[in-house]
Write a protein that binds this DNA or RNA. Structure first.
Lengths: 161, 161
DNA sequence: ACCTGAACACCGTTCAAGT
DNA sequence: ACCTGAACACCGTTCAAGT
C-alpha cells in the first residue's frame, strides 16, 4: 500500500495530464494517491523538485543519436504526449542549461553551440505549439494548421540550409 | 490618489523586480499600491492579463529594424533589465506565436520562419541566462561566464554561417 | 470610476505524532 | 520507511457596498 518515489512521479504525471499545469498542485497529487498532502514531503523536497523529476521522466526515454532531425521530432513528440509537457520540460531545462545531460548528448553529435541552440528551439517551439492548441481548442485564437511544418522549417534553419 | 491601469502595471513591475516571479502575487501588487487586492480587478481582468501587459511594457520600447543581430541584443537587454523579465515575456509570447506584433515586425526584415526561430531562440536563451545567474548567485550552480558569447554564437547559427 | 471589507475556495510547507 | 492530523501563512477572485 505504501507509495514509492516512482508512484509519486506517476501520480503527478496523471494529475498533470488530466488537469494541466494551471491546476497542478501538491494537494491534487496527494489526492490522486489517496494520501495526505504532507506525505508527499517524505518522497520529495518540494514542488519544484517534483516538477524536475517529472521533466526527466518525460524526456528520459528519448533516444539520442546522430540524426538530429529525428531526435528533435522524438523530443517534440515526447513533450506533446502529455498535457503541458513542454512547459514542465522548459522550466526544468532552462534551469540547467549547460548542466543538462541532454545538451551534452546532443553536443556529441554536433557542437556545443548547435546543441544548445537546437534544444532551446525544440523546447520553445513545442511549448508554443502546446499553448497554441490549448488556446485554439478553447476558441480563444484561430487554429494554425502550419505549426508542424513551421517546426520542420525552423529545424532546417538551425541544422543546415 | 486614484490609480490608472498604467499605475497598476508600473507597480506590478516594481514588485516583480524586487521579489521575482516566485513571490509575485496580486496581493503584493495591491500592497505596493496601498490598495485592497480586490481593487486591482477594476483595472485588469485577472493575473494572466496583468502579466501580458507587463510583457508588452518590457518589450514594447525595443526598436525593430533590419539589423537583426542588434535587434536581438536589444530584446535580450530589455528582458535582462528586470528580474525574471524573460520568463514573463516567454509565457506571454508563447501564447501568441503567430499573432504577435513582434514576430510580424521581425518577419518584415527576414522571413516568417527566420523571425519565429529567432524569437524563440532569443527569448529561450535569455530565460535560461536569467535563471542561470539567479541559481549561481544562490550558489546552487557554478557560474558560466560564457553565456553572453554563447548567445552571440547561437545568433550566428540562425542568421547566417 | 475607483475603491473597501468580507468572504470563498483554495495553495505549499512544517512538524509532532503514529505504525 | 511511510503516513496522519493539525496548523501556519499565504493565494486569486467575487461581490455587495461605499464615494
Amino acid at each position: 500500500m505504501a507509495n514509492s518515489l516512482d508512484d509519486v512521479i506517476d501520480g503527478a504525471l496523471r494529475v498533470l495530464d488530466a488537469r494541466g499545469m494551471e491546476f497542478f498542485s501538491m494537494r491534487r497529487v496527494a489526492a490522486e494517491l489517496d494520501v495526505q498532502p504532507s506525505a508527499l514531503y517524505h518522497h520529495v523536497e518540494n514542488k519544484q523538485t517534483l516538477l524536475t523529476l517529472m521533466a526527466a521522466r518525460i524526456v528520459g526515454p528519448v533516444t539520442i543519436d546522430e540524426d538530429l532531425v529525428a531526435v528533435s521530432h522524438r523530443l517534440r513528440d515526447a513533450m506533446l504526449g502529455i498535457r503541458d509537457g513542454a512547459e514542465v520540460v522548459a522550466t526544468a531545462t532552462a534551469f540547467r542549461l549547460g548542466t543538462s545531460e541532454l545538451e551534452a548528448e546532443l553536443a556529441k553529435y554536433s557542437s556545443p553551440d548547435i546543441a544548445r541552440t537546437l534544444l532551446i528551439y525544440v523546447i520553445g517551439h513545442t511549448q508554443a505549439t502546446q499553448l497554441h492548441s490549448q488556446a485554439s481548442t478553447l476558441g480563444l485564437i484561430p487554429h494554425d494548421p502550419d505549426l508542424d511544418e513551421s517546426f520542420v522549417r525552423g529545424l532546417a534553419i538551425i541544422l543546415d540550409r
